[in-house]
């Protein structure tokens, strides 16, 4: 029983990481209907920058702030350098462009920091908390807390602020939004920046419990996307729940013997979901994908 509980707790931590990354996908998708294949790499960039700042001798909080802002800058650059010049390209070119951006981010990171594995110290110590015989790493509470905070802030942002509503309008009908005086380009730029920021928040938050390295973005990005699709793409709470489901399933599977195929679960899930539940598990959103 303790074992099962431990798996669930670990799974929830892992899952909230996926959820945090999924939020970045949802944010960019909601604003511009682009699936940003570079989302996982934005997260990796955030983690790497934070590590570099810390290595340079600056204190951890500074590293965290610089890392997250670095992700935002990378998001802005991604939009300015690759998405905007492509104009009204369809999904196929945008898949290729964001994939290209993912490779560029990875390449730049390798150029500067190589292919090594790095990590950050935990935000508030490494001493594990014992609870009902289960071990909890303090950093996982940070990850959980951040995920919850981001959901609350994003929900407020989109439901109650003028900018948030302008972004939604841009996503629903760019032409009508333009007529209403919304600068749609700036809204999309903002969203890619926010997406980069969110990705980097995830990257910095998980760097103390999972290594960050140039290739990590691919797998984490894919899993974040799986989580977002599980939650019915477009829905912030759904994305987090999707992440938790994926995290717990993975941890259970590897805990009970199939650890070699831990990474395959996300891909199996995505195939099953796309094929059988095209609207996602929670899918209330009217997203057309078939």
């Amino acid at each position: 029983m303790t074992e099962l509980l431990q798996y669930v707790i670990t799974g929830v931590t892992v899952g909230s990481i996926y959820g945090l990354i999924a939020l970045g996908f949802v944010l960019v998708y909601n604003s511009s209907h682009v699936i940003n294949f570079a989302q996982g790499d934005l997260q990796m960039v955030g983690g790497m920058i934070a590590v570099a700042v810390l290595t340079a001798g600056l204190p951890l909080p500074v590293a965290v702030v610089v890392g997250t802002l670095g992700g935002a800058v990378a998001g802005f650059l991604l939009y300015k350098a690759a998405i905007e010049p492509a104009g009204d390209a369809g999904p196929l070119p945008l898949v290729v462009i964001t994939l290209g951006a993912a490779l560029v981010l990875r390449g730049v990171v390798e150029l500067i920091w190589g292919r090594g594995y790095y990590s950050l110290p935990a935000f508030s110590g490494d001493e594990a908390i014992q609870f009902l015989g289960v071990t909890i790493v303090p950093q996982s509470l940070w990850v959980l807390g951040l995920t919850a905070a981001v959901v609350v802030v994003l929900t407020y942002f989109f439901n109650s602020t003028k900018t948030g509503k302008a972004i939604l309008a841009t996503s629903i009908d760019p032409d009508a939004a333009t007529l209403m005086g919304i600068n749609t380009r700036r809204m999309k730029l903002l969203c890619f920046g926010l997406g980069g920021f969110l990705g980097a928040v995830a990257g910095v938050a998980i760097a103390p419990i999972a290594f960050t390295y140039s290739m990590v973005g691919l797998m984490l990005g894919l899993k974040g996307f799986v989580a977002a699709v599980l939650g019915g793409l477009g829905n912030f709470k759904g994305a987090v729940i999707g992440g938790l489901i994926l995290g717990v399933t993975e941890t259970m599977m590897s805990g009970y013997g199939a650890s070699d195929y831990k990474d395959a679960i996300a891909f199996l899930l995505i195939l099953v979901i796309l094929i059988f539940m095209p609207r996602g598990l929670l899918g209330a959103s009217g997203v057309e994908r078939v």
Binding site: I35, L222, V229, Y261, F267, I270, L274, I275, R289, V290
Partner: peptide, 24 residues
């Protein structure tokens, strides 16, 4: 089933298929 999907979803589904083969 996979080719009913469009755009991003098809990209992700084929990517998933390829990754499963790779992992096996």
């Amino acid at each position: 089933p996979i080719l009913r999907l469009k755009g991003y979803y098809l990209a992700m589904a084929t990517l998933g298929l390829g990754m499963i083969i790779y992992l096996v």
